[in-house]
Design a protein around this nucleic acid. Structure first.
Lengths: 187, 187
DNA sequence: ATACGATTTTGACTTTTGTCAAAAGATTAT
DNA sequence: ATAATCTTTTGACAAAAGTCAAAATCGTAT
């Protein structure tokens, strides 16, 4: 089971353990424009995207839709605050394309902690990767101009450029729609 | 041992286990303007701040000093990328005031994993708190204006206002020095 | 192909933020 | 107390980004 960054190879699991882990996951389809999670619900699943593309977003005070993340194949979807602390989510997660996920429920995941002590380690490592990703994102906002953030987005996620609305990208990099259009125009 | 958000109370440790945990920590003083970590070094300690105030910063491409965090009493200092992946740090961590920390080395911490399986859980939970903090920070950049970010900083960290240079705050909220001065002027 | 809706671009204008350099104010060392 | 240094404020200006509304473009369903 090699799932990109989210690999469990390095934990030297036995066949047994791998089977045990995988047996706790179930497949799930999410059709284009359907929700994997709605704001107000408590996130009850971690999802690994095997196919397709989803995005997360929420509404700010002025009811603007703010895109916070894209989840193409190979992504792990965890709505950290909601899933970990059993709180209602602020975010929606919606499929941009027909998508296939492999999901594990909160409860199943708790069971795994008991059956497989390494599961804590795995989850901690996954968390560490998330931390690096978000730090990187915060740093971009802190130090880069709108146009530099767009450049960076393009080089980090070239595959997404063809697959998502520019409006989503604009909001993801924290820029007005019209401004992104102008940024793209000049070179 | 109640250390604010970073509490180990909820893990229902025995006296033994608490002693075991604490025995792995050692005290460390960092005088004003001294470094807890320098860029280029591999971060070898997690530090819990019991007294004083430190900050983390790095230099961007144009050699601007960018403040990324403040660590007053009650903070947990982990330079995630460097500590977890044993990579040289981009960041400096320097004391703004004479500070006292309680630190645990990478190795000691690894030993704790073996002696105390719950240590993984604790570290995962600490990571989850960090994730929420950084997400909150990224969201501020994504959705708030410079002056709103300053307001938010003031209400989130009122104690820091009196204790750190405005220049550090400006950089932390991603705003030019002169701009922050003007923001503060008008009301 | 046509028409509808959604997305993207454009124009004219405003507001926000940055830049640079100088002045004012604080702080520290001698 | 004074000089030297660091921090903060200010002014004049420039650049970046936002706003609003209309036009152009694209995609899809009929």
């Amino acid at each position: 089971m090699n799932i990109g960054k989210w690999t469990i190879e390095k934990y030297n699991f036995s066949e047994e353990e791998i089977k045990l882990t995988l047996s706790h996951f179930v497949p799930k389809m999410v059709k284009e424009n359907e929700f994997f999670l709605k704001a107000g619900e408590v996130s009850n699943y971690i999802g690994y995207v095997t196919k397709g593309l989803l995005r997360s977003y929420f509404y700010d005070d002025q009811a603007n839709e703010i895109t916070t993340n894209f989840f193409p194949e190979g992504s792990l979807i965890i709505v950290a605050d909601s899933f970990n602390n059993r709180l209602p989510s602020k975010e929606y997660i919606k499929a941009i394309e027909d998508s296939e996920l492999s999901i594990i429920s909160y409860q199943e995941q708790m069971d795994l902690y008991k059956l497989l002590p390494a599961w804590y380690q795995i989850c901690k490592d996954f968390g560490d990767i998330k931390i690096s990703e978000i730090l990187n994102r915060a740093e971009s906002f802190q130090t880069l101009s709108a146009s530099e953030r767009y450049q960076k987005f393009c080089s980090e996620f070239p595959q997404l450029l063809q697959r998502v609305n520019l409006g989503y990208i604009a909001s993801y990099i924290g820029v007005d729609n019209a401004t992104l259009s102008r940024i793209r125009k000049k070179k």
